[in-house]
Design a protein around this nucleic acid. Structure first.
Length: 264
DNA sequence: ATGACTAAACCTTTTAGA
């Protein structure tokens, strides 16, 4: 059973690619989307239902917007955003599914703030948002020890996740302050599933549309799937699927896929 | 070159993304 994340940068534009990808990846049970950029009244619920999928979604106009698409499961206890945090943006959507071991798994889908640049108001908001997420997740992990935090984190773990660490030293997505927040999330008892397994060198999940960045593999690894300590023994693979980045009119992000087995 | 693409809205120009 697989859990995947994909920042689609407009679901209106990318819906055919999402449906195609789900058709060619039948093991994917839950797909978390970010940047749907659709208000809930415009969400393609009927098309996805007709294709056999169950969906939860939470969006807004122009920016942000998240969704959870599942193949067979309904998903329960749906929660929008970070409870207790005053935030008018559609960035988080959580639901509980059943893992292959038969136990519930809390799936938290996040579109983390971009942060623009260190020193800006948007960067300060990103820091506040990360603190609020961490404190809320602390309680979620007690309620549901099996938890997956996945999405577009807009943060690299370290220089391995950066195509040019020298040029991008302490720039947005690569600052010590952001990475400290990411490590604080790890400190809750979460693990970067990507690094649990051997990966190709220079593995990235996002490439700029400009300057032939994908062809040159000038990318960043900013889309992540974190698994809780309780779920970690069941992880059997984690991979970045670069194929959709080669589509016509691609998203600038490509899917990341976690595979869970039934036994530890 | 505070640039290069892409998407959406305030739509032939601006804002934001990362």
């Amino acid at each position: 059973m697989q859990f995947a994340t994909w920042n689609v940068n407009s679901l209106s534009v990318r819906l055919p690619q999402v449906l195609d990808w789900l058709a060619t990846n039948p093991e994917v049970e839950v797909l978390a989307l970010q940047e749907t950029k659709l208000t809930d009244d415009k969400f393609p619920l009927q098309l996805l239902n007709e294709a056999g999928f169950q969906v939860h979604f939470f969006g807004q106009k122009t920016y942000n917007g998240v969704a959870l698409i599942s193949r067979t499961q309904t998903g329960t206890d749906v929660v929008r955003n970070i409870p207790g945090m005053d935030c008018d943006m559609a960035r988080v959507l959580s639901a509980t599914y059943t893992a292959p071991n038969g136990q519930p798994v809390r799936v938290v889908n996040g579109y983390f703030p971009n942060g623009q640049a260190p020193g800006t108001d948007k960067f300060a908001y990103k820091m506040r948002w990360l603190t609020a997420l961490r404190e809320w997740l602390r309680g979620e992990l007690v309620k549901t020890p099996q938890l997956i935090l996945l999405g577009d984190f807009n943060i690299t773990f370290d220089d391995l996740d950066v195509y040019d660490p020298v040029a991008l030293h302490e720039t947005i997505h690569c600052t010590t302050e952001e990475r400290t927040h990411l490590q604080d999330l790890i400190g809750l008892g979460l693990t970067d599933s990507h690094r649990l397994f051997p990966q190709p060198e220079k593995s990235y999940s996002w490439w700029d549309y400009r300057g032939f960045a994908f062809r040159r593999n000038n990318g960043l690894r900013i889309d992540h799937i974190l698994v809780s300590d309780a779920l970690k023994p069941f992880a059997t693979a984690c991979s970045i699927d670069r194929l959709p980045r080669k589509n016509e009119r691609p998203s600038d992000h490509t899917p990341v896929v976690l595979t869970l087995g039934a036994t530890a």
